[in-house]
Design a binder for these strands. Sequence first.
DNA 1: CAGTGGTCTAGACCACCAC
DNA 2: TGGTGGTCTAGACCACTGC
Lengths: 251, 251
Amino acid sequence: MIQTPKSQYEQIADLLRDRIAGGVYPPGSALPSEPELSAELGVSRVTVNRAIGLLRAMGMVRVRRGAGTFVRTLPTILRDARRRYAQRDRGTGAGAVEIADLDLRSHTDYTEIGRTPATAAVARALALAVGDEVLVRRRILFAEDEPTQIADSYYPWYLAEDSPLRQADTGVGGSYARLAEMGCDVVRFTEDVHGRMPTDRERTALRLEAGQPVFDIAHVAWTADSRPVEAAFHVLPCHLWTLRYEWDDPR
Amino acid sequence: MIQTPKSQYEQIADLLRDRIAGGVYPPGSALPSEPELSAELGVSRVTVNRAIGLLRAMGMVRVRRGAGTFVRTLPTILRDARRRYAQRDRGTGAGAVEIADLDLRSHTDYTEIGRTPATAAVARALALAVGDEVLVRRRILFAEDEPTQIADSYYPWYLAEDSPLRQADTGVGGSYARLAEMGCDVVRFTEDVHGRMPTDRERTALRLEAGQPVFDIAHVAWTADSRPVEAAFHVLPCHLWTLRYEWDDPR
DNA sequence: CAGTGGTCTAGACCACCAC
DNA sequence: TGGTGGTCTAGACCACTGC
């Protein structure tokens, strides 16, 4: 690699990144204002703004309009797929396991629990026809009042109709314990992971900075006879999470 | 959701996205130039440029400086973790499995194969001390001459020293077959997945557009007695890949 | 109300590509 | 050589925050 004659805004982003790493701007503190940085570095404010845009996309700073630009603090959260679903009976739902592990306060906002026709993605995941009735459970999970995840779960309506799955609190063992009581023991999981830019709704709900990508996880739970009984779609800000998977070699 | 008074550049990005989806700008074709769009839409060129920046981050267009902005074509590639490593003996290395599945031409550029001291990340993954000798195999994988992945594999030096792992072509069955011949049967895998912005080197090597995120996968292969015998770090452009994982519930 | 960041413009200069 | 996108500036107006 010979040379990378970087643009000014990239160099400024590097500089600010180094200052943050070096503790000049400690976690939680505000960066100097854009006019200040503009004066200090001898560039226009637009250029400073653009540099800060890179830091935002990296998840290093959060901007509060009218107030300033602040260095981020939240630690990364480990989502260990195998462990997550194996620990169902810890009382907390699967969704809260990771947050509890970090000794953070967690809570869940249910935004919708009800009957709805299956979309194409849901129908495909649950081996139903588009438009078939399903139970949907939409929720947003928080750690220390910061949104960390959107999770929408779907169940075939004929399964969920008269079950506790229609309540926010599904009881000890969570939804998989209820499915088991209905004769649907879950023995296998699959997940398809995408990385992409969030939709406007997702960006708002997760309070994301401009340019920050999300993980989009399509999760399916299977019974021993290979029937899909739950489909869940999770949207997670990339900068907050590490996904861990583990599997045995089938040979 | 009441209102989202979008900025002009966001609206223009939406407009262009719709036109691409609607076939007005078909795959592979060039968008109108920025001055043209600027005139058509009655905004400054900077605003058009910023809108196109959003499309670039989403992976919808590729810009060739001096030539124009082009609609992307490459399909998404499925990386089925379980299958990927189970199909070792298909002759092709694990890295080429997914590309071959899509009937695309694939090739691999080895950029380095040699001895090196373990970095912190490598040492942690292989349960070695920082600075211990390891064999590194660095490569970039291509589909149709487009870079699709960076993969750096590491092996403890005492294992790899006199093995075919030091050659580019590791022979039938690939590296895991060679490890098995050395008494290191791999029976289990773990992967930690991050989503982040690429480094400058990665952006160059993968020919990424500005603002495009990558998957960063730390892959470890384990023997039956829980010894890590291979660590591999993969960097994949998010917009090109879907990661698939599958596991049995350990209860 | 003063200060913050968000956005937009017109104009400019540059590196790069294709002809 | 003309057209493309990349970058930068000075100035402006706005919405929002916190006092």
